[in-house]
Nucleic acid binder design. Structure first.
Lengths: 349, 349
DNA sequence: AAAAAAACCGTAAACGATTACGAAAAGCAG
DNA sequence: CTGCTTTTCGTAATCGTTTACGGTTTTTTT
């Protein structure tokens, strides 16, 4: 491995001091234009690049942000990351990234690594686990700014960028009710997952508002909400019971795809026999047949917003750095019961 | 912002030298266990973390790898990244990542940033553009090891991890022929995309092998191969012509989803009226109806392999560091023409 | 008890850059 | 030609570590 060329190499080659070389390369004023020209040429010739480690150390400016996500090969999170990186690149920040794999200990390990690397700020989507306090503690202690994404888990005043999950679920449920569905089941995640809970809550609110009974047998919980297989099994459970629902709201699009399969197997037409609404507007949703009605979740925007907030926080802007993105429903065919059926219900009801 | 606590702070608090503190923290031998204990306690109390920038600078060991991908919110690339990060984390490497967005200049910008940050190695999936030579040149000049993923663009002896695209396309086409399809169309990408070309070539080989005519009108090129809409339009073009194909092979699953939509609109049953095979085994493929026959592309494995090779290259192992993953077809229903039809063809033919 | 060895710790020089400070040289006014 | 300013450049300290080296002090050996 050839040694990196440094200021010293340029200096020695030209018989000037390191200081002078530094001055030339950094556009300082007190330098002879003549000398500067020669130095710049030499630097170009030797392909000199400043050692960012040395520069950062000396200037005490480490333009680095860390991003910790539970998983990276997941459409929502990868778009969040994309949003962060777009902005970060423009602001000349370096992006370190870590994947916690939903494991709190790994999350903390990564955080440790980040702190060693003097990150100026952190964007994190915390694990569903409980010891989140310990994850954020090292940041707080060192006053390292951080923004939580999607899963605020810290104190109420910790800045975050999230989505109005409750309202999203409310809109989804309300929409189903609107279209004439009455027995709406919910397929959700584990009880410790606060996102799942928020969506459950939105579902309940809508049911209450329209005086529909809340039937616990219509609420099924799965472990992995990103796994279509789970949606399939839970859908079967609820569809094979004697009092089967006429619509299912799943808290992710992946679960919904499982429901599609179950419905097909049981010869239930979508949406006439079974209305379906998903959540996240992932790529799959447009490609299902019929296309899936779902709740929008603008990952890229959220990522960009998170970075903006982080930057504000870094430069010491103390204003409110939290934002809840408003929920929006994307209506497609999976929830649009055909007019005839809708009418017959209307006349019969 | 509170100053970071450094060795000096611990040293001053205990009235020992910085050297001694360093020794204690780094498990050196020549230190009194008693002193060591006190120092460790103090370090813990002050929440000391070594400044990785200083350590790297001094030891001249920058355990950092850079990853450059054309895009990050794409299933294949995000799984590649996942594979890289798994391995990298275990080997205590820091991962810098950059998204080129298919733009060569941005790619080079990122490369510059990486070099400033003294990356020990780079994993890159180059842009389809032409000036790739300039992208890799800075690495070569500095003897920084690199591994190309998926899109080898440099010299023949540059290490790479790729997939046998030609064979994949061959298998896909051969399979369609095997199942009784004769008029097989291809939906591909732009001519400058070497991946697209490799798959085209595989398609041609299969057609030749089985003495099927190569009809240029059956080959349609789109710009964005990750965009289902493109597949839809190209499929319409080819399906509405007077001599329509009985099967379509698309070089990505996304294009295939567009074909599904076109087929549905034209009341063509899949696979009886139209066989379809995609490429990449992305999540969507299992959820289409019927499930899509596709060519496997094991992103995570490829990412892990790339990291392994990179590490070999870093430690100076000069052996052959390139691998072409063998192609494998995943057969699902979209290409399985029902037996009756297959028989009737057999008897009539 | 003297010599040798071992144990423990501090001084100072690196790593590659930036920057405060001062010195030499050159220009200019009188 | 003297004294002052300006231009140009080098010396040395610094960022936070690691580490070669040397110096004490203590222990072991003979």
């Amino acid at each position: 491995m050839p040694k990196r060329v440094g200021l010293r190499d340029i200096a020695e080659a030209l018989n000037v001091s390191i200081t002078t070389v530094s001055r030339a390369l950094n556009d300082k004023f007190d330098i002879n234009p003549e000398t500067k020209k020669v130095i710049l040429e030499k630097a170009e010739e030797l392909n000199y690049r400043p050692n960012a480690f040395a520069v950062s150390l000396r200037k005490n400016e480490y333009n680095t942000i860390g991003v910790i996500l539970p998983t990276i090969d997941h459409y929502f999170f990868s778009t969040v990351l994309k949003g962060i990186m777009n902005k970060a690149h423009n602001s000349n920040y370096l992006v370190l990234i870590g994947e916690s794999g939903h494991q709190t200990d790994k999350e903390q390990q990564i955080m440790d690594q980040f702190i060693n690397h003097c990150v100026t700020g952190v964007i994190i989507s915390t694990t569903v686990g409980s010891e989140v306090k310990d994850t954020l503690e090292p940041l707080r202690r060192r006053r390292i700014p951080f923004i939580q994404v999607d899963r605020p888990a810290g104190d109420k005043d910790d800045p975050y960028v999230r989505y109005d999950d409750e309202k999203g679920a409310f809109l989804a449920t309300e929409h189903l009710i609107d279209r004439g569905f009455k027995k709406i089941a919910l397929i959700k995640g584990p009880d410790i997952c606060n996102i799942s809970n928020a969506r459950l809550s939105g579902y309940q609110l809508a049911m209450e508002k329209y005086n529909l009974p809340f039937d616990p047998r219509f609420v099924k919980s799965g472990n992995n909400i990103d796994f279509a297989e789970n949606g399939y099994h839970l859908a079967r459970q609820v569809l094979l019971a004697k009092n089967r629902p006429d619509a299912i709201f799943t808290i992710t699009d992946e679960l919904a795809t499982g429901v599609y399969r179950a419905a097909k197997e049981l010869n239930l037409r979508i949406p006439d026999d079974l209305g379906i609404v998903g959540y996240s507007n992932s790529k799959i949703s447009t490609h299902l047949s019929p296309p899936l009605t779902t709740v929008e979740q603008p990952g890229e925007e959220m990522g960009e917003q998170a970075f903006d907030f982080l930057q504000q926080s870094i430069i010491g802007n103390a204003s409110d750095l939290s934002k809840t993105f408003d929920a929006r429903l994307i209506i497609r065919d999976s929830s649009l019961k055909s007019i005839q059926i809708l009418n017959s219900i209307a006349t019969n009801g």
